[in-house]
């Protein structure tokens, strides 16, 4: 692996085996269980080759079910690729997605300490950074409120603030800003995106929101039914993406 390649995927595919519920009596069900006819194979991601360098901002676009989230899980190593594939990641990563990442029973303070500690910060680091995190997330009034009372926007702000201040080398955002965050917060996150390259922070951004991708991405990947259809500059790929959506719609109408 080259020195500044932080995420590398080689021939990565991912097949899920799903057992469908078979209707019928117990005998029929156990028969299909034994001969395996109730197992369905779903190829979520097919044969992806990709290298992401330190400081890059990579966007991933594609229709629902095209394998974007699975690809993120493969990058982090949470999912293991099918035999023959190789995935590796270098550095501390954090994956941000809406609704996940925090324990609703814990307060904002406790969640910050827990997540920060797991990211590798010491308690004294966190004591120093605590104010900054809370101010960045604009949650000064909710420090001791349990997360379950937080709105989606508040959670998103908190998660992003933790990720930024815990100095994650790689931030993977999975539909993270989907409709949350007011203008002020957008401005702040834009600052982070702008300085990411200088700080050597890698960002992978899965989104339907084209604005951020268009503005900051160095490269964009278009996924279609698990395959990497194209990689290129934001303008090029977003244009292609819009056209594929239109084509899909047309072909559906013809059927």
């Amino acid at each position: 692996m080259g020195d500044d390649v932080v995420i590398k995927l080689e021939n990565v595919s991912k097949t899920f085996k799903i057992r469908d519920k078979v209707p019928g009596n117990l005998l029929q069900r156990s028969w299909s269980f034994l001969n395996g006819s109730d197992i369905r194979r779903i190829e979520a991601v097919k044969n992806i080759n990709l290298e992401i360098k330190r400081g890059e901002f990579v966007g991933i676009v594609g229709a629902n079910g095209s394998g974007k989230s699975t690809l993120i899980h493969l990058m982090t190593g949470v999912y293991k690729p099918d035999v023959g594939g190789m995935a590796s990641i270098k550095g501390n990563y954090i994956r941000l997605s809406l609704g996940l990442g925090f324990n609703g029973q814990l307060t904002a303070r406790e969640n910050i300490y827990l997540n920060g500690s797991i990211m590798g910060l010491t308690i004294s680091d966190l004591n120093d950074n605590f104010r900054k995190i809370i101010e960045f997330a604009e949650l000064q009034k909710f420090v001791n409120t349990k997360l379950k009372y937080f709105s989606r926007g508040m959670r998103a702000r908190l998660a992003f603030a933790v990720a930024v201040h815990a100095e994650a080398d790689i931030i993977l955002m999975d539909e993270f800003f989907g409709g949350v965050g007011d203008e002020r917060f957008k401005a702040r996150s834009d600052e982070i995106f702008q300085e990411a390259f200088v700080k050597g922070r890698t960002i992978v951004h899965v989104s339907h929101n084209m604005r951020t991708i268009k503005q900051y991405a160095n490269r964009v990947i278009l996924l279609h039914e698990g395959e990497c259809r194209s990689i290129g500059s934001p303008d090029e790929i977003l244009d292609l993406y819009r056209r594929t959506i239109r084509v899909d719609k047309l072909s559906m109408r013809e059927e």
Binding site: T76, V78, G91, Y93, I94, R95, G101, N103, I118, M119
Partner: peptide
């Protein structure tokens, strides 16, 4: 799950 899926650390922890 909310930690295991999102952050790199030794999962045995």
């Amino acid at each position: 799950q909310y930690l295991l899926e999102n952050i790199r650390f030794n999962k045995l922890d």
